[in-house]
Simulated scan of single mutants.
Amino acid sequence: MAAVQAFTPLADIKPFKTHWKIQVKIVHSWTQYTQFTGETVEMVLADTAGTLIHATVKKPQVSKLQRFIVSGEWRIIEHFTLTKSTGKYRATKHGFKMSMMEKTVISRTPAVSDDIYVDLANFPDILNEAGLSENILIGTSS
């Protein structure tokens, strides 16, 4: 009988390999278009410890993976790359950003928790002495 590989917590994943296996909840997803990357599907994922990470599905993988990307659902994700999370508008505080690749597998799994996994900024952190902080992403609802 084959041994079952345990899930790696999001806090422990590092970019030195691509064969990670994580169990996450899709907290939020959206489609994004830029001239540099074209159309992508962006997600914020959370594990049971409440760690959040930003993930991207680039255009070549969208048709293969999009049916598994349902906000509020739990998924198992295997084989992905990690890059340093940089830039002015970061979706999470995690030091890395996930990118799905051709070998990425996303599979369904029963719900592990009903938690909503949000990480809200304190108002004083958003509005500092110099005015509005441009390093905190502020969402709006329509």
Rank of each mutant, 00 (worst) to 15 (best):
L45F: 05
K59P: 00
K58W: 12
A91K: 09
T48F: 13
I26H: 14
E39D: 00
T34C: 06
I76H: 09
H19K: 08
S63W: 02
I69A: 03
W30M: 05
W20Y: 14
Q32Y: 05
M98V: 12
W74H: 10
T8S: 10
H54T: 02
H94S: 12
A91C: 13
F7R: 03
I76A: 11
V44F: 05
G38S: 04
S71G: 12
K17I: 10
K14C: 09
L65P: 11
A11Q: 08
K93I: 08
S99I: 03
T40Y: 13
T37W: 14
T56W: 06
K21H: 05
I77W: 01
L10P: 09
F96H: 11
Q23C: 14
F16K: 15
I13A: 03
T83N: 15
E78Q: 15
W74C: 02
V44G: 08
Q32S: 12
T86D: 11
K58T: 00
F7I: 03
F96D: 04
G38N: 07
F68Q: 15
R67V: 13
K103V: 05
V62E: 01
L52H: 04
E39Q: 11
S85E: 04
F36E: 07
G38A: 02
Q23E: 12
Q66E: 15
I13M: 02
K93Q: 10
T37E: 06
V27F: 08
A55D: 00
H79I: 14
F68I: 01
Y89S: 11
L82Y: 00
R67H: 15
G72Q: 05
G38M: 04
P60V: 06
S29F: 13
Y89C: 09
R67T: 14
G87E: 04
T92C: 15
D12C: 10
G95A: 14
K84I: 15
K14P: 07
G87T: 11
F96E: 05
E73S: 05
V24R: 01
P9E: 11
G87R: 11
I76R: 08
T37Q: 12
P15L: 13
R67E: 07
E42W: 09
K14W: 07
L10F: 06
T48M: 11
V70C: 00
F96G: 09
R67W: 08
K84Y: 13
M98T: 01
